[in-house]
């Protein structure tokens, strides 16, 4: 049997994992499903592209690629800056909208507001950049043989490596640092966190910055491996939710594993059933988990 679909699934799963990590953190700490999270992926990709265009325009030459990858350090630097900007965008939306709804105690309304925000953010990208797809690089990559009949391009392997590094970093941050402990405490009981002396509003700011930045990196990875389109994030929203819920809300390792599960299930569906049904995979997984184990694989909270 050709195992290439496993490799494809791993690569898709890697791009999902970071986005799902952001979903799981914001969901756990803010206690609402943010339907605008997918748009942070798109905005991260478009901001990176715009920054790269600006830098290229100012320096007079497009950003150089770093062999064997199709992009270079210049674009990575732009992606980092774009990730920070996306985090700030998430924070601004929270200050303008979600925080006020939280203070009013109407978190369910925040879900609907996030749905409105997601439509508006996507439409704004369409208005600014049009719906035609764009690419970070025109370069065609040769897939390297990896054994067992599997192949992957250098870019794909690079995305997997970045995901592993970043996810491990976030997991360590949560497990070992003061900020991480505070985030876990706020996720469990915000009111107790306050009286323990934790600045809950500050922790929530950190959560948005981190979640937005991770989403942006995920969006750049997706843009690099596939293409950049205004609807790219919205189309990933269901897979991201599925990955976060399969893994268990609040668990970073869970989000990574959930991302891989969704990615491999999608790739298997494409291989054995048909590419047109790929988008249904997340829904099936989601319903399965909600029915059988609503806390997910790594979830502790009921």
């Amino acid at each position: 049997m050709n195992l290439q679909f496993l490799m494809d699934g791993l690569v898709v799963g890697a791009t999902l994992a970071l986005g799902a990590t952001g979903v799981t953190l914001t969901y756990a700490n803010l206690r609402f499903a943010n339907f605008a999270h997918g748009e942070f992926l798109s905005w991260g990709a478009y901001l990176t592209m715009t920054l790269a265009g600006l830098v290229g325009g100012l320096s007079g030459a497009p950003l150089a690629a770093q062999d064997p990858f199709s992009i270079g350090m210049g674009l990575l630097a732009c992606a980092l800056l774009a990730a920070a900007l996306t985090g700030v965008l998430a924070l601004l939306i929270d200050v303008a909208l979600f925080r006020r709804l939280r203070q009013r105690g109407t978190a369910v309304t925040a879900v609907m507001a996030s749905f409105g925000v997601s439509m508006a953010l996507r439409a704004l990208l369409e208005a600014l950049y049009s719906t035609s797809p764009r690419y970070f690089s025109e370069e065609l990559q040769i897939a390297l043989p990896l054994g067992a009949g599997m192949r992957a391009t250098p870019d794909q392997l690079g995305v997997c490596a970045v995901t592993v590094l970043l996810a491990a970093g976030v997991a360590l941050l949560l497990a070992r640092t003061a900020v991480g402990r505070q985030m876990r405490a706020v996720a469990e009981n915000p009111s107790l966190a306050q009286v323990v002396g934790i600045d809950v509003a500050g922790v929530i700011r950190t959560t948005w910055l981190l979640g937005g930045a991770l989403a942006a990196v995920s969006g750049v990875a997706l843009g690099l491996l596939v293409q950049v389109r205004p609807s790219m994030g919205a189309e990933l929203l269901l897979p991201l939710f599925a990955a976060a819920i399969v893994g268990g809300i609040g668990s970073v390792p869970g989000a990574v594993v959930g991302g891989l599960v969704v990615g491999i299930a999608e790739a298997a569906t494409v291989r054995f059933i048909g590419a047109e049904w790929r988008a249904a995979v997340s829904f099936v997984l989601l319903i399965g988990v909600l029915l059988l184990r609503p806390t997910g694989l790594f979830g502790r909270r009921a």
């Binding site: 006020r100 709804l101 609907m112 507001a113 508006a120 953010l121 439409a123 704004l124 719906t131």
Partner: peptide, 21 residues
């Protein structure tokens, strides 16, 4: 026009958010 039409959705999104607020 396709790009301008997207602004309509932005407008309704704003309307929705401001009403909720």
């Amino acid at each position: 026009q396709a790009r301008a039409a997207a602004l309509r959705i932005v407008l309704i999104g704003l309307l929705l958010s401001l009403t909720i607020l």
